[in-house]
Amino acid sequence: MELLNHMAYFVEVVKARSFRGAAEAIGMPNSTLSRKINELEKFIGLRLLHRTTRKIELTEAGQIYYERSRRIIDEARLAHEQLGSLLVQPQGILRISLPADFAVVILAPIIKAFSDNYPGITFDFDLTPRNVDLVSEPYDLAVRMGNLPDSGIIARKLGSLTRSLYASPDYLVQNGSPRNPNDLKDHECICMRQDKSGEWHLQHKEDRIFVKTSGRFQMNSIGMMRRFTSMGAGIALLPDKIVGEDIANNKLIRVLPDWKGEAVTIYALTETRLVPAKTQVFIKFMRKNLSGE
């Protein structure tokens, strides 16, 4: 990269036919520009310019080097311009691994809006909870929630989901409403498999409490938890974003409204930090819509 920069400085000097003119065009001190051309000549091992007090002239080697360098710099500039346009309207197939319930309930409208903004991108979704191998399998990225396994995969935070306690009106009529978090031990609690030993971490302002829960149902599907809860199977810790319709239809009621569960973090996983434009703009769009950035 340093050699390419020095080459670009040399081209500007030749075009301007003076160090002063080139320095003004580049926005660099004249002495610095002169030093960089000296460094280039030392690196090549040949003099490229004849310098006088009034003007500069190309040596024979300088003429050859200028013709080659000018083409290289023009190609580099064109490559940057083309990549810039690609970032504005990226194209190609975007292959994404997504957790099914989360994708259907929350991500689907966001991805639809993204597709409207970027008509050059087509999509291939794999809705699966398994940890796909981003190195050996043909995915551009995976979207995952919660704690991540320790690996060499690059994780970018997209946002987080707040969680609250919910139950159906029928369940609360039959079993009563808990008055404080400790009452949850006497209720049927529907838990995610990821909840360590059925332990819920609840928070109210600065107060935090760990509640040991028990229940007959444990699963790894947010959609299934929401469905079971709305049918009166128990109390569940659910993301607030997915229950709006059930609350409006009086299928779910907020329980212990002063308390919230730990937020669930959403990540975009990629094999490397150097991702193509289609992946860059997707991650940026998801982050904006999931975190409000």
Results as ranks from 00 to 15, higher is better:
I242S: 03
N131E: 15
Y118I: 03
E39S: 10
F114N: 04
T32V: 11
V143C: 06
T59C: 04
V281M: 07
G159K: 05
F102G: 01
N250W: 00
I235F: 12
V88Q: 13
E206M: 04
F19R: 01
R254A: 09
M145W: 00
V132F: 10
A155Y: 04
S85F: 11
H50N: 14
L238P: 04
L87V: 12
D74E: 15
A76D: 12
Q63Y: 08
Q218S: 12
K42Q: 14
T122Q: 14
F285D: 03
K241R: 14
K212I: 08
K260Q: 12
V143P: 00
K205I: 10
E2V: 04
D126G: 04
A23K: 05
S85L: 15
V135P: 00
Y171G: 09
M1E: 12
S164K: 14
S177R: 15
Y118G: 02
Q89N: 15
A233I: 02
T53V: 01
L40G: 08
Y139T: 07
P29S: 02
E75K: 09
V135H: 13
D133P: 06
L40T: 10
E41M: 08
L127N: 02
L86F: 13
V211G: 09
R226H: 02
P257I: 10
A76M: 13
K260R: 14
N117Y: 11
D258K: 13
L158M: 04
N289W: 03
N180M: 12
S34R: 14
A263M: 05
Y118K: 03
G92V: 10
G223I: 09
P109D: 11
V255Y: 01
K36V: 03
S221Q: 03
S197E: 15
P149Y: 00
G244L: 09
F217R: 13
T270P: 06
V275W: 00
M225W: 00
L290M: 14
E2M: 01
Q280K: 08
L107E: 11
E2G: 00
M224D: 14
H6S: 03
I266Q: 04
L269A: 03
V14D: 02
S214D: 09
R51S: 02
G45N: 11
K36C: 00
T265P: 06
S136Y: 15
K112G: 10
V14K: 02
T59E: 05
L4E: 11
H204Y: 09
E67R: 13
L269H: 02
M219G: 14
L98K: 07
N220L: 01
E24L: 13
I110V: 14
T270W: 07
R273H: 13
H187F: 15
G292V: 10
M231Y: 12
A8R: 15
N5E: 15
T279R: 08
V264C: 09
T52M: 05
I93H: 13
D183Y: 11
I222W: 12
I37C: 03
L158Q: 03
R20E: 11
P138W: 14
S214C: 09
Q203F: 03
G84M: 07
T128R: 10
